[in-house]
Amino acid sequence: MLISEQALRQFTYNIFLAIGCSEAHAHLSADVLLRSDMRGIDSHGVARLSGYVRLWEKGRINPKPNIRIVHQTPTTATVDGDAGLGLVVAPFAMQVAIGMAKTYGSGWVSVRNSNHFGIAGYHALMAVEQDMIGFAMTNASPLVAPTFSNERMLGTNPMCYAFPAGKYPPMVVDMATSAAANGKLEIAQRKGAPVPEGWLQDAQGNYTTDPHALKTGGSLLPLGSDREHGSHKGFGLSATVDILSAVLSGANYGPWVPPFVAFLDPPADPVGQGIGHFLGAMRVDGFRPVQDFKDSLDNWISRFKSAQTIDPEQKVIIPGEPELEAELDRRMNGIPLVDAVVKDLNELAVRFGVEGISPA
């Protein structure tokens, strides 16, 4: 089913209002989720809406948080999200980072006591709008086993770097540090399809293509899948995200990160508060004139786009291009939602007494 952006945005806003969010936070939360759907990252858009509602029902999300800075130097800060939606906590923290960068050239903020923050790209792109380079990362529910292990110790722990360009759109490197994001498993589950080999292992540590393997003790694999293909590098990247996001801020880290799914309780022996994020902004003109940088990045992009390919029918894809293409298409034609997501959303509509969704 295709749903118009505006209709889905209004629906999402209504649901966030219904769970007690302020108008400003409902607007912002809806914007973060819709940006994900518009950019073709269906795993982190409105398909996650019912998950936030379930966490709210469990008392694990505070719809009216007192988000505040609890530690600060001129260029660094720690933010406590007061168990709020990461969809509003992370933008608050990025605005703090941008404010410091405007004065001092860069700003770095570690966040504790937050929740799932949507796509990392949303937050990193906030800095790009100010002619800055943006950084955003977060730790997440422990679903990933480190190299040589079959114990879930880390999240998919995404990281994003966003760079302002000139004639080209911003270059956005937004990726999980696991072989695949958990949301892609959820998409496969809804479609009843297997996942590629190398994404998952079962409880015994054997490769599996069953998208439900996590429910039977399996785990996601780090980026690289196994030691011979560089999984130690994915493990190292994921560990870096976990340390910057949580060990630095005082959030829960590693296997103590509370799960996103509401039917699983957080660990009984937490080592911190909520989940953690890490956000940063650097002024381009702290290094060279902005236009000079943009011209050089345009030249970089042009040269890579023209790189000789093995198959003449293929082309080198610049990070961020697929998401931009999806956004242009969906703005014109609507956002595709699978039946399972439509059913899920309309059940929320009935429950909260708001208008349901229908085809564009």
Rank of each mutant, 00 (worst) to 15 (best):
A193P: 01
I69D: 03
L348K: 05
S114C: 06
G250L: 07
V172H: 05
H232K: 01
L49A: 07
H123Y: 12
G155I: 03
W108M: 15
G192E: 01
R60V: 08
P289R: 10
F352Q: 09
A340T: 07
S106L: 15
D311H: 10
L297S: 05
G218S: 08
V172D: 09
H27L: 09
I317C: 08
H212Y: 15
R288T: 13
H229I: 02
F293E: 08
G230W: 05
N66H: 14
L200D: 01
A120D: 14
A213F: 03
R283Q: 14
A120Y: 12
A281G: 07
P146C: 06
A203S: 14
F263L: 03
R54N: 06
I61M: 03
M38W: 07
L348M: 07
E321H: 04
S50P: 06
A83Y: 11
D131M: 07
G236R: 01
D285S: 13
D265S: 13
A307C: 14
D265F: 09
V172Q: 05
M175V: 06
W300T: 08
R54A: 13
H116K: 10
F135M: 10
W256Q: 12
W300A: 10
V341C: 01
Q10S: 15
G250M: 09
G40P: 04
E228N: 06
S106D: 09
G286R: 10
V32Y: 00
M100G: 01
P270W: 07
G81S: 10
L125T: 05
P289G: 12
A90V: 15
L154R: 00
Q204V: 04
D242W: 00
G274M: 05
L34R: 01
L55I: 03
H229E: 04
G205V: 03
F11A: 03
Q189S: 03
Q130G: 08
K102M: 08
N14P: 02
S29R: 04
I19S: 07
L345H: 02
G155R: 00
L8S: 03
P312F: 10
A83Q: 14
P319N: 11
E23K: 12
D210S: 11
R48G: 01
F148K: 11
G121C: 10
E325Q: 15
L87S: 06
V46Y: 04
G205M: 04
I67M: 07
